[in-house]
Each structure stands twice: as structure tokens, then as C-alpha cells.
Amino acid sequence: MKNYVKKPYFEVRYKDANGNVFKRNFQDDDTFRFEHKSDANNDLLNYKPDNVVIDSNVTKTTEPPSLINLMGLADLLSKKGFTTSQVKDTYQKMYEAEYVSYPRTEDTKVDQKDFDELLPLVDSIANVVGVDHSLLTHRTARKKYITAKADHGANRPGINVPTSLDELEKKFGKCGKEIYITLAKAYLAILCEDYVYEQQKAHLANNPDFKSVSNLPKKLNYKLVFNEQDLDSDSNKSNHQGFLSTVTPYIYEGSNPAPAKPTLSFLRKFL
């Protein structure tokens, strides 16, 4: 990180008023990327506003994410200012009071017994964390989240359901409250319907090498309860607006990527 030297580059890209960007796939021997902005400005003179051609519209679905582990939980709560030690220590106290399951587990699924044990409690858990019962339609376990045998089962709410979030905050502080909200919503999400979206692919009429993809949400379903994109950085969140008919060229400035900072998110993904 200390030795990193930023090396900017400039290239022509297109953008519509919804923020959808059309760009070319860069290869090492391509000549449309420049070290100096003045060269890119000269290149920009070769491009005029263009029209969008839709190549495909495909409806796709995504299942709810797998259950989060303790590191994923700590990662999410680090974004709210809680340290890994705070999460670990608070979670242990909550486990001893049976508000959450066993913490130090490698399990990423639950067995049928674990699932059946929590099933009568899910509406009560949903009440505590403010989740609409009508979203929890999968009361029969999906294969993705079930294993034949689990030593402890994945991290999840415990059999002792609090009467309110205030009860948790009084006993375990703000960290305990946020642990329960996050853990409960991550678990309740596996009972929800799939996320439905329309994936559009497009290119430009006069410059077909410029291409773009846009994912348009149709039915949020589980994402109304728990959105796994919160585990990713903002830069990974894509635009969710459809293509407009016309686009305008502009100069995009990029650079060689800086070495990643050793955050908990980085460490979790690396491992």
C-alpha cells in the first residue's frame, strides 16, 4: 500500500440519463485507452450521441442467500461501528441466555430437527424485528439450507424469543440488539420467495462494441427482509434502472486499483 502509485487512464464511454454506462471490453493491445486526458478529448470528437439497441430481456430469479456465519455477522455490524470483539463477546452472552444459537460453528446449514424447532417461533421472531409475516411463505425447508446432520447448525436465532428489542438492548446493549436483528432477518430470509429481476443486455446502434447490462428488480421478496449486498462494498452495487433510448459520450477516468485495505470485509472474502 505504501508503494502504490496511481496511474490514471482515460477512455470514451457512453451513458444514458438513468446512469447506465456503455463501455468496451478492454484488452492489453487495445488503443482506445489513453494516459493523457487531452488524447482522450481528441478521441471524443470521433463519437456522437447514439441509440440503444436492446439485445435481450430475460426474467431471472435468485434464491435467498445461505445463512451467515459469525464472521459475516461481525462484518455487517462493523459497518455500524461495532468491533469484532464486541460482537463475539456479546453473542456469547446472548447464547448463554438462549437468544441465539451456538456461535463457534463451521456449519452453514441446519438439519431438519433445527429447522422444525424454530418453525413455530418464526412469527414471533418476525414480530420482534418488524418483518411482515406474509413474506414468510416457505414453511417447508428448502434443500439449499438443510443438511442431513449438523453438529451445531448455522448461526441463527435461539429458542428464547425476546418480547421486544428493548429487552435485548437493556440486557446486552445496542450491540446485542443489532446482533439479533441481523441474525433473525438473515434466517427469516430463507423462508421468503426468490428475488425476481429482469436482466437487460444492450449495445449501441452505431458503436456495437459498447455494451451494457442492467438488472431491473421485479419482485424484491427476500431482499425486503435481508439483502446480502450489504456484505459488499458500495462499488459493487449495480444500477437498477432500465435503458433509455439515447446515450451521450463522455470521458471516463479510471486508474490501476489500489491494494485493498485490510478491513474485515476484505479478510472475510479473501479467506
Rank of each mutant, 00 (worst) to 15 (best):
S134H: 00
Q229C: 07
E117I: 06
S38D: 09
Q241W: 11
P259M: 04
R24L: 12
D151Q: 10
L188R: 00
I125P: 07
I54D: 03
T137I: 02
A74H: 04
G173T: 06
S164C: 15
K37R: 08
Q200R: 10
S78W: 07
T163L: 14
N207M: 07
Y222Q: 05
G72Q: 15
N160V: 14
E228G: 07
P64V: 09
N239H: 11
P64G: 02
N155L: 15
S214N: 12
P157R: 07
D28Q: 12
L165H: 12
N236E: 06
D116C: 11
V100E: 08
P208D: 01
M94H: 11
T90V: 10
T84L: 13
F115Q: 05
E253T: 15
N42E: 08
K269G: 04
N51L: 10
A17V: 09
P162Y: 14
A202T: 02
I181F: 12
F22S: 01
F226G: 10
K23G: 15
I159G: 12
K23M: 15
K88H: 15
F226P: 03
A148P: 01
V131D: 01
L73P: 04
D43E: 13
R139W: 02
K93L: 14
P65R: 09
G176W: 09
H203C: 08
D230C: 03
K109Q: 14
Q229M: 06
P103V: 05
T137N: 03
F22H: 00
H138T: 04
T62Q: 15
